[in-house]
């Protein structure tokens, strides 16, 4: 019996469309920490696609960028300490 997706609080992004397809031309890059910050939770975890509303292509790119940013200490693996 397919369970309805649990209606988690929509913290990030609109469910409508992918942020990158439609509106801005901002590139997904591991150096652009500000953009990636939308896609990690308070605990520093990557927000799943069903919540971030990304399309598959961009979600994969975002995930890859986040992992690269973590590798070079731009993003933290755990708590979401602000990197100023």
């Amino acid at each position: 019996m397919a369970f309805a997706k649990k209606s988690s609080p929509r913290r990030f992004g609109r469910r409508k469309g992918c942020r990158f397809c439609a509106d801005n031309t901002l590139k997904i890059d591991y150096k652009e920490v500000r953009t990636l910050r939308y896609f990690i939770s308070e605990r520093g975890k990557i927000v799943p696609r069903r919540i971030s509303g990304n399309c598959a292509i961009h979600q994969r790119k975002v995930t890859e960028a986040i992992k690269r940013a973590r590798n070079i200490a731009l993003l933290s693996f755990t708590s979401n300490r602000t990197v100023d």
């Binding site: 200490a73 993003l75 933290s76 100023d84």
Partner: peptide, 18 residues
């Protein structure tokens, strides 16, 4: 020099070069 997200080799900060 920027603050690192997590300590690397006991350093809290580091100078980034691209």
């Amino acid at each position: 020099t920027k603050r690192l997200a997590y300590p690397v080799k006991k350093h809290e900060q580091g100078t980034y070069v691209l």
